[in-house]
Amino acid sequence: MSTTGISSWAVDLADIGAVYPFQGAEVIFLLIGLAFWLWWHVWSIKAENARHQEKIANHGSAENIKDALENHH
């Protein structure tokens, strides 16, 4: 019993193909991967927008912006 399908190296390597664990579950791996990728885009856009709004709320006055342009090149 082995997650990779290999339980001993007493084999002819010419007969061996894939050796990664849980072969046969590739569809599940892909679905998890796709979900994670799409979620990450949504999260990053929301988080970035929130940071922008926070920055504007805390520092977005005309005076602050003029000061920032003087001091942060």
Binding site: I45, H52, E54, K55, I56, H59, I65, H72
Partner: peptide, 20 residues
């Protein structure tokens, strides 16, 4: 409405908060 950063943020600078 997500392509470009707000005008205030562009003027402040994207790193403004961390710079402060």
């Amino acid at each position: 409405g997500i392509l470009r950063i707000p005008k205030e943020v562009e003027l402040l600078g994207l790193d403004f908060a961390s710079a402060k």
